[in-house]
Simulated scan of single mutants.
Amino acid sequence: MASETEKTRALLQACSTESIVCSIGLGIFCLVADRLLQLPLIQQSDWLRALSDNAVHGMIGMWSWAIITGVKKKTDFGEVILAGFLASVIDIDHFFLARSLSLKAALTLPRRPFLHCSTMIPIMVLTLKFTMYLLKVRDSWCFLPWMLFVSWTSHHIRDAIRHGLWICPFGKTSPLPFWLYVMTTSSLPHICSLGMYVTGTRQLISSTQGTLINV
């Protein structure tokens, strides 16, 4: 009964005014940021284009996790920073595939690097969760697989407006419509939050930290 009560509460919180406003704000940020990145001033410089694009990835990751946590404590803010780092660090695989630290080489690859395969997301999330179980990582870090899921998924969805989703071994999809990217990105934190309730992650965090993450 308690589990069902928690799930019902999650559904109600997911539709709260605060949560909806934050999600709308995230959608507006996605819309404005990606339009600004098309300005000639940014597009004419490889470094400015790459850094700006990666920064937007990081901001979306941070914003998404902030919606989930509510940022009520200093520890929540640290998690938000970590989520932004995870959302942006994926692009390091460009340099691995290029086998060079040259930005030009990283931007002119013959194919997409391995971390940009969307099949890697569930594999890495499950691997992280299994590794944490084997190492008996304390319960207060049980949110980490979900953070990885949100951060990497937001990165892949945003890249998909240009290149589509690469789903091994089935190939890739057509580029996502811009409106679908905005809607999916803004709803992703709620999907993750509800998933955390269903799997009991929320309840575990509550019992170990004495607080309940806001949706």
Rank of each mutant, 00 (worst) to 15 (best):
A10F: 09
A33G: 05
C15W: 13
P110K: 03
L126T: 12
Q43F: 00
C142H: 09
G200L: 01
L126N: 02
Q44T: 08
S193N: 11
A33H: 05
A2K: 12
T211V: 14
H116A: 08
K136A: 13
S45F: 06
R158K: 13
C30D: 09
G78D: 04
L31S: 14
D76E: 07
L101C: 08
L39P: 05
Q38K: 12
G70L: 00
P113S: 07
L31Q: 08
Y181Q: 11
Q203R: 14
L103H: 01
F85R: 01
S52T: 08
G164N: 06
I42K: 04
T201Q: 11
S207V: 06
V89Q: 00
F85N: 01
F95Q: 03
C142P: 05
P169K: 07
E18I: 05
V71Y: 00
P110W: 05
L194T: 01
I161L: 07
H163P: 00
V182W: 01
G25K: 03
Y133V: 07
S140T: 14
C142Y: 08
V125T: 12
Q13I: 03
R162L: 09
S16W: 07
P175Y: 07
V56G: 04
K129A: 13
Q38N: 09
G25F: 04
T69Y: 06
W65I: 02
T201H: 08
H163I: 12
C22K: 14
K129S: 11
L134T: 03
L86T: 05
L51W: 14
R138D: 14
T17L: 15
W166E: 06
L41R: 06
Q209M: 14
R138K: 15
D91N: 10
C117M: 12
V182D: 02
M124Y: 11
I42Q: 02
D159I: 01
W141A: 09
A55G: 10
Q38H: 12
F77M: 11
S45R: 08
V182L: 08
R158Q: 13
I60S: 00
M120N: 04
T131H: 00
E6K: 10
Q203V: 10
I42S: 03
L101P: 03
Q209T: 15
S186M: 15
G25W: 04
P175M: 09
M124K: 04
V182T: 10
L103Q: 01
I24W: 03
I42N: 02
F114N: 05
A14N: 05
L109D: 06
S3G: 12
F130K: 12
R35S: 12
W179M: 06
H116Y: 13
L86E: 04
K73I: 06
D34R: 13
E18L: 08
T127C: 12
L212A: 10
S186T: 13
V137P: 05
I90Q: 11
I161W: 09
